[in-house]
């Protein structure tokens, strides 16, 4: 199998850098989101129209999903990143249904980039919310002997995040292509319907896993719990 099937094909070559179709599709998606966001920001009204109500419902649903996992105070901090992940991956997955377009998420580089962003955001939010000492202490608890396992876990779950999305999207498109080759025209249509569901499910899984990873970085350690209990006791005594 060539890169055209399992990966992205280079459209432009600028020196040593090749611009793949996945990047171009991503630019299109970003541009579409940007135009929609700009138009929405200009047409925002106190009494919402239907589209505004739908947009508010989407954001409120994402906020509620995040609030179920992380502490209330961190919801608004995480919302832009997690919501963008969900929206981008959803649209990117569905882009493969458009003729002449390839889903960016069928490119391992794209999913790896997203996984790396999740990896980085986990540490970013952990350090911002708990401080660098509190965040690093997380890796040596309950024992310093677990540090290698924590590191391996961080790397493996990032790899799994990238490979899972990439594998699911590629396998779905390959199955559709094989059916098209074997059975002929219009037969893969039911499989394309399944593609819609798969796109939604994979976007939800990726975003939810990213949210869980970030939430795990925000969980209080044993020492945090002890210090919190001690401070509460001092407050009660005072």
């Amino acid at each position: 199998m060539s890169d055209g099937v399992l990966g992205a094909s280079v459209v432009w070559q600028i020196g040593p850098f090749g611009i793949t179709d996945a990047v171009i599709t991503t630019w299109g998606i970003v541009a579409g989101f940007a135009v929609a966001a700009l138009l929405a920001s200009r047409c925002w009204r106190p009494e919402p129209a239907r589209w505004q109500t739908a947009a508010e419902a989407v954001v409120a649903a994402i906020e509620a999903a995040i609030a179920d996992v992380v502490p209330r105070a961190a919801v608004r901090r995480l919302l832009p990143f997690v919501a963008t992940l969900w929206l981008f991956i959803l649209v990117a997955n569905l882009a493969g249904l458009v003729p002449c377009l390839q889903a960016p998420t069928r490119d391992l580089s794209t999913t790896a980039a997203l996984a790396l962003l999740v990896f980085g955001s986990t540490h970013w939010f952990g350090i911002r919310i708990r401080g660098i000492r509190g965040h690093l202490r997380h890796y040596i608890e309950p024992s310093i002997l677990l540090l290698p396992f924590h590191v391996i876990g961080e790397i493996s779950r990032t790899l799994a995040l990238a490979i899972r999305l990439f594998g699911n999207m590629v396998s779905l498109e390959m199955a559709a292509m094989l059916l098209l080759l074997i059975a002929g025209f219009l037969v893969p249509v039911p499989l394309l319907m399944l593609h819609v569901i798969e796109a939604v499910v994979q976007a939800y899984i990726f975003g939810m896993l990213a949210l869980i990873y970030i939430a795990s970085a925000l969980e209080p350690t044993e020492r945090d719990a002890e210090s919190a209990a001690a401070s509460q006791t001092n407050e009660e005594k005072s």
């Binding site: 090749g18 996945a22 990047v23 960016p104 794209t110």
Partner: peptide, 17 residues
């Protein structure tokens, strides 16, 4: 294969988005 250019651009794209 993992294309580092694409990876970097996708990260940049996502951050811009």
């Amino acid at each position: 294969s993992l294309d580092w250019t694409t990876l970097a651009l996708e990260m940049l794209n996502f951050l811009v988005l």
